[in-house]
Amino acid sequence: MAPAPTRGAARALRCGAVGLSTGLLAVLAHAGGGGHLPSLPHLLVFALAIGWTCLPLTDRQLGFGELLSLVGVVQVAAHVFLVVLSRRPRELVPAPAMLLGHALATAIVVVALAGFEQAVFRLAAAVAAVLPRRLSPPLAVAPLRIPIAAHPPQPLAEVLRRRTVPRRGPPLS
């Protein structure tokens, strides 16, 4: 079976790349625009939440538009998350410098992730082209055994009734 970047460790790696790159650049853009820097545990929880959230999306290759919308939503969520952590609700509407920082971070992350997606899928296709394939199903070496119950199970009361009270009918002769 050919390796697929939509399953297993490759899928987890793709989610981790989205989570870490988006989360890290969102925090750096927020701090560059004059915002509050969170503690490392908060940052890791946020990056893990992003990676976990993108898990349903990585069952196929993500296109540029999908990545742009995903990263854009994450940038907005990161801004709100960091404002809530800093306990400054007046900063919920970003300043122009912070808005520019988030937009620049979105562009950088989308371009990097689009290249990463293409590289991962091309690598998987190259590895799949080199690996041997089974072109036909394996030959059968024995008959197929299907277990079938000979008699349906009967309750004990039914078995005892049949043995102790024979069926009555007309005489045999």
Rank of each mutant, 00 (worst) to 15 (best):
V93D: 07
F64N: 13
G72P: 02
A77I: 07
R90N: 12
A77Q: 10
E91N: 05
A107Q: 14
A95G: 10
S86I: 06
L92N: 02
V83P: 00
L99D: 13
L100N: 09
F81I: 00
M98P: 06
A97D: 06
V76W: 10
L100P: 01
F64T: 14
L70T: 05
V74S: 14
V93Y: 08
V73Y: 04
A95K: 05
L104H: 11
L92Q: 01
A105T: 01
L99S: 15
A97N: 10
G72D: 00
L104Y: 07
E66P: 09
G72A: 04
E91R: 02
A95P: 08
R88I: 02
P96D: 07
A107C: 09
L92D: 06
L82H: 04
T106N: 11
L104C: 14
G63A: 10
L85C: 08
L70W: 03
F64V: 14
I108C: 12
V74I: 14
L104A: 15
M98N: 11
E66K: 07
A105K: 02
V76N: 05
L85H: 02
V71M: 04
G63P: 05
F81L: 10
A97P: 10
S86C: 01
L85G: 09
A78V: 03
T106W: 06
V80C: 08
P94Q: 02
L100Q: 13
V80Q: 09
L68G: 12
I108L: 15
A77M: 10
V93H: 11
S86E: 02
R87F: 10
Q75G: 04
E66H: 07
V71T: 11
P89V: 10
V73F: 04
L85N: 00
E66T: 13
A105M: 03
I108F: 12
L100T: 15
S86H: 01
L68T: 15
G63F: 06
A103K: 12
E91A: 15
E91F: 02
G65P: 07
G63L: 08
P89A: 12
V93E: 07
L104Q: 11
A78K: 02
G65E: 13
E91V: 04
A105R: 00
Q75V: 03
Q75T: 00
A95E: 06
R87E: 13
G101V: 10
L85T: 04
A103V: 15
L82M: 09
P96M: 07
G63K: 10
H79T: 03
T106Y: 01
T106G: 12
M98W: 08
V83M: 00
T106C: 15
R88P: 07
L70R: 04
V83Y: 02
H102C: 13
L70S: 11
